[in-house]
Design a protein around this nucleic acid. Structure first.
Lengths: 132, 132
DNA sequence: TTACCTGCAAAGGTTTTGCACACAG
DNA sequence: CTGTGTGCAAAACCTTTGCAGGTAA
């Protein structure tokens, strides 16, 4: 995958990709922490550069869950839509098929192809609704 | 609205709320620029604090359009879903009703109430698809 | 050997915080 | 008057960039 494009397979890149797989929802910082447990010297700069590269290659995706850092996850496997509660911050996952009626319609009517791997929906979860 | 909660109605707050209304898609920086045209001394710190306050009061919403700063818009009026092209960065708007099948199902099946005023869908627009 | 990668340090940009003064109510 | 709001400056973050040395192929 990397070599096909004249790129190199380094220990850092392997570790970072593994970390994204294992963490599921991974910020640059959490990836950095995970990687450093195995290789203490890896720099946060490398994490940023590698995540960007892996995304170009289509190996990972990222979304923005609320404020702050982006969240990366491995592409292909267990794609899901995120439900982010704006009150308690909890994150639930749902099958991306729930978006099918929307993606189909936007493709036909607006010529826009939604990237389902990046969808985050904000709102209020059941628990917080009861509390309010 | 403000006074009901023991808060004060200041010129800065009025100007910032007006700016959000007029700009439509407003980042903290663009609000700051707009406000300064009428009142040069207003500080960016006040913009941040006021936007946060206005959101708590339900007068504005914000979404995250791609990387970087959040985008604020006035609540209530002309709600729309954003279609953000990840290649060219263009932003299109669609009627939030397009999300109805999804919001209805998530409410029934997951007890999650989607805030339609905050939805941004990332993907590829028609122009960029042709180019690729 | 060669060009790609990495670590380090520093810069850049955005958002938050502390504090004293200003002012709306 | 009283306590909320504001401006200013600095700190705190997060992310990017430049550069020299390291290393995969």
């Amino acid at each position: 995958m990397l070599r096909e494009r004249g790129l190199r397979l380094t220990p850092q890149r392997q570790l970072i990709l593994e970390a994204v797989h294992e963490l599921g929802h991974a910020t640059p910082e959490s990836v950095h922490n995970a990687v450093r447990e195995r290789a203490a010297g890896v720099n946060i700069t490398t994490v940023y550069r590698t995540l960007e590269l892996l995304e170009e290659l289509g190996l990972v995706n990222h979304t923005h869950l609320s404020h702050g850092s982006p969240t990366y996850h491995a592409a292909g496997e267990d794609q899901h839509v995120h439900l982010v509660c704006r009150t308690c911050g909890s994150i639930a996952e749902v099958d991306p098929a729930v978006m099918d009626p929307v993606t189909g319609r936007l493709l036909r009517e607006r010529d826009f192809r939604v990237d389902v791997g990046h969808v985050s929906l904000f709102g209020l979860c059941g628990n917080c609704r009861e509390t309010e």
